[in-house]
Design a protein around this nucleic acid. Structure first.
Lengths: 335, 335
DNA sequence: CTGAAAGCGCTTACAG
DNA sequence: CTGAAAGCGCTTACAG
């Protein structure tokens, strides 16, 4: 393995110069010619900066702990409409970290280790990590207390739970949802239904429902009759098979992409064409269902920006701030 | 942050003694009493070993790169029967690594970075990682070549693809599947059907199918009539709704848990009781469907053992060996 | 068992 | 710009 010293000797410059150049701090200190010599020598020797040495010297870890929910956990006997693991936001975190030279310590908070936090404690805080990202983690008192004890900066990568504490990545899906409904109206739809597995005005659904409600009311089209609740897949099947129900609307906006996919399948089964007879809009922007018109929550950006804010706050010695990611109406072929 | 030196001073011993004790090498070198003093001092000072220093000194990284498939990728317009991300095996890897003091560099090989491998190259091999785990990665020539160029030890965490190169974690589901079928026979079933989305004798299904085939033939119950192919959910629906089809069998063995869940739902819809009228067996042991009788591939163990073999081979300076994990028939309430 | 020392590869403050 | 040096926290070889 080539070291800084090897590169400096090969380039005929000082170790200091090499360090500055390879860390992008050459500006106004090292001549263009020397820069080129250094870069060429580093390339030729396949130089790879030793992070352990750098981090020890700098007394930092360049590591972020990512506390991740055990999303593999079953919800009981009816896993319908369950969203998949949000790998997209994790990819955002990983890509951002790589960009800034950080590593990620992935710490799944699953049933195996939720009670005994001593293992977790051994992976968090100096000299193991500089900050924590809560990835899709529901509020857990004991975990938060541990983080606070270590005085670690942290951010929450919340999805749609408005009750989550700050600092967090907030999602703003309301304008995008309004745009989707407005687009349906523009396409001539008047009877636009809503479908969710619970009452949309309660539970964790309000933020998903709000844009639909607002735009429908603004257009004078809101009607309680258009709100459908389907607690599982079979309920969707019953609704879709019922001609009377189907005649009530020409478009359906769903609580998530899983449910939208279910509607598409059921329409197909009943000979109802999508989007000609019924338009279908999903929610989340799940990568898995990349053919459904949806409200894209932009999970990748959420992860990326959350990690970036955390890293910048660490480097700047300040507290992380809230971040808002505007969702986007992603129009595809189901409306 | 307390250092080794702080601990040695607090305990009134040498730094060497502290290092030996905290690394579990005290055996026969440090007296019981000093051990206790050291442990007490470390505890009191909340001593946390600095991995960067240790790793630099030891010229190792104690890091494993995990190349993970972008399993969030859609399969086109029909995502039916698609297994979820295999988080269980990832948890196994993470837990094992933590046990041995290793960190994991998670490197998703997704559409964003499959072509340009230079970023990957910057995260693999000394001084960034000591070995590579291929996690559910289909054979990709350019990635393998990169690894080989760096002369890194690696293991494949293959699932059911017998064509994967070695060294790998092999899965042996045949005896468990035979046990499941034998159990059904013991329960009085004679007409035991198979259901998969493609012909089970081709594609990647042979290993899933083999145990069923062998046990049915051994019992003289094998019959081509019992093999059902359902390419999507609607096909299962048609089969389950068809009395003639249903009368052909009293139990159905499915290619994976997703399909088994589909059969359970369809049975419920048609007023067919599970397991009284039809017994259902899944395959994979997906955590999400933890109420279905299934062939548990023991993903967690697969991940754990793969990581352990890689770490031990690194520490022992030898090449990783193949590992076989025997699957287990996990009997629940659907048979 | 201890003490004193070397050295892993880097970054930075300092004198020139 | 360079050169010489200090020091991050650890492990280990060495002399006692």
């Amino acid at each position: 393995m080539a070291t800084l010293k090897d590169v400096s000797e090969a380039a005929g410059v000082s170790m200091q110069a090499v360090s500055l150049v390879l860390n992008g701090k050459a500006e106004g200190q090292i001549s263009k010619m020397n820069c080129e010599k250094i870069l060429a020598a580093a390339e030729k020797l396949d130089f790879r900066l030793n992070h352990n040495a750098r981090r020890m010297r700098n007394k930092c870890t360049e590591n972020l702990s990512v506390l991740i929910d055990d999303i593999g956990q079953p919800y009981g006997d009816y896993p319908d409409f369950r969203s998949d693991v949000n790998m997209e936001s994790l990819y955002g975190i990983l890509d951002c970290a790589a960009q800034y030279g950080y590593d990620i310590k992935l710490l799944p908070m699953n049933t195996r280790n939720l009670e005994d936090l001593s293992l977790l404690d051994k992976r968090i805080g100096p000299p193991y990590s500089d900050g924590v990202i809560f990835h899709g983690l529901y509020y857990r008192k004991n975990v938060f207390e541990l983080i606070k004890k270590r005085k670690m900066p942290y951010v929450l990568l919340s999805t749609l739970d408005e009750r989550q504490p700050s600092p967090k990545t907030e999602i703003d899906p309301v304008p995008a949802m309004r745009a989707a409904v407005a687009r349906l109206i523009e396409q001539g739809h008047r009877k636009i239904a809503w479908c969710s597995h619970r009452d949309p005005r309660t539970s964790f659904l309000p933020l998903r429902f709000r844009g639909y409600e607002e735009e429908m009311k603004a257009a004078g089209l809101y009607d309680e009759e258009l709100i459908m609740i389907a607690e599982d897949e079979l309920a969707v099947r019953r609704l879709a098979a019922d001609r009377v129900v189907r005649d009530r609307f020409t478009a359906v906006v769903c609580m998530n992409d899983e449910m939208a996919y279910r509607w598409i399948l059921e329409c197909r089964y009943n000979g109802v064409r999508v989007p000609e007879d019924i338009a279908v809009i999903g929610f989340d922007g799940s990568y898995k269902y990349n053919f459904i018109s949806t409200i894209d929550l932009r999970f990748y950006e959420c992860g990326y920006r959350a990690a970036e804010e955390l890293i910048k706050s660490i480097q700047g010695g300040r507290t992380p701030k809230n971040i808002t990611i505007k969702s986007k109406f992603q129009e595809r072929k189901t409306n």
